[in-house]
Design a protein around this nucleic acid. Structure first.
Lengths: 146, 146
DNA sequence: GTAAATGCAAATTGTTTGCTTACTG
DNA sequence: CAGTAAGCAAACAATTTGCATTTAC
């Protein structure tokens, strides 16, 4: 039930639409909990589970973006295009970074777009390890390998 | 109890030493659970909580590195120096990447150091948001702000 | 001797799932 | 009307914590 999932016919429900609308309205990158709070202003009975389910579906569809970086809760970005982020080590908030990739040594600078004081930078590549390239289907079983 | 913590006198217990030794022996980046499994060969009664506690303390001290990137469990790196990583989207394993920062468009290439097929790249900066810069002590309270 | 660390079990937190009912296409 | 999605509550997984006991310095 991951990426081997058959495509289903998605329906644009009231909840899904409002969750998406509210997320896209924000320049920030809320947690599911944050967004649930916001959406409840328009849909008082919406459940947190629905927010989680829709955020997952929408990011699987490439309509929004999951930010799995950093400790703590997962955050979401209404903009699916790849771009870099700055995470505040104080409060955990995440903002878009205007920083260009070549500016890797800009620790100590203030990001012109978001006003964050830049302290560090992490680069993470994603890919497939040799084992998973051989047999992608077997990959999840290796999950616990050190 | 975060970064405002007073320095305590750390003691090099048998458990702490062995946890550190085993982590540093690895070229891989295990989860706390993985490491607990390994350490139990030498310390059969060590608890998972002790492993978690020590990994946190050691990374707070800058002796090891926490990898908070990616979904799923946190991973740890015995090498505290900043360097980039590749995370397998199949099995979740993390390896060191030899990729140079300028090689950002190397999707499709095989990492010469780890053999992973590179598919994507995420850049995340860390820093302090304007609010936390004003009053770092107040920062954690803003944790929930969207 | 005293503060720090351990082991154990229980508590928390963030996220997911099962199931029945409601609603979209 | 057929199948997807919602709401609710319960289940889960990863991590953290309380507490009595042990250990390092």
């Amino acid at each position: 039930m991951k990426n081997t999932e058959a495509a289903t016919n998605l329906r644009m429900t009231r909840q899904r639409r409002i969750i998406l609308e509210e997320l896209c309205k924000l320049k920030s990158h809320p947690t599911a909990y944050d967004l649930h709070d916001l959406v409840r202003d328009r849909l008082p009975n919406v459940s947190l589970a629905t927010v989680y389910r829709n955020l997952e579906i929408l990011s699987d569809q490439g309509i929004i973006q999951r930010l799995d970086t950093g400790p703590g809760q997962r955050r979401f970005d209404g903009n699916p295009a790849p771009h870099s982020h700055v995470r505040c080590i104080g409060c955990g908030r995440v903002a878009d970074s205007s920083s260009s990739p070549e500016g890797l040594n800009e620790a100590g600078q203030i990001c012109s777009e978001c006003g964050y004081l830049i302290l560090g930078c992490t680069i993470e590549y994603t890919g497939l390890c040799p084992e998973c390239r051989k047999d992608p289907a077997a990959a999840p079983a290796n999950n616990w390998e050190v």
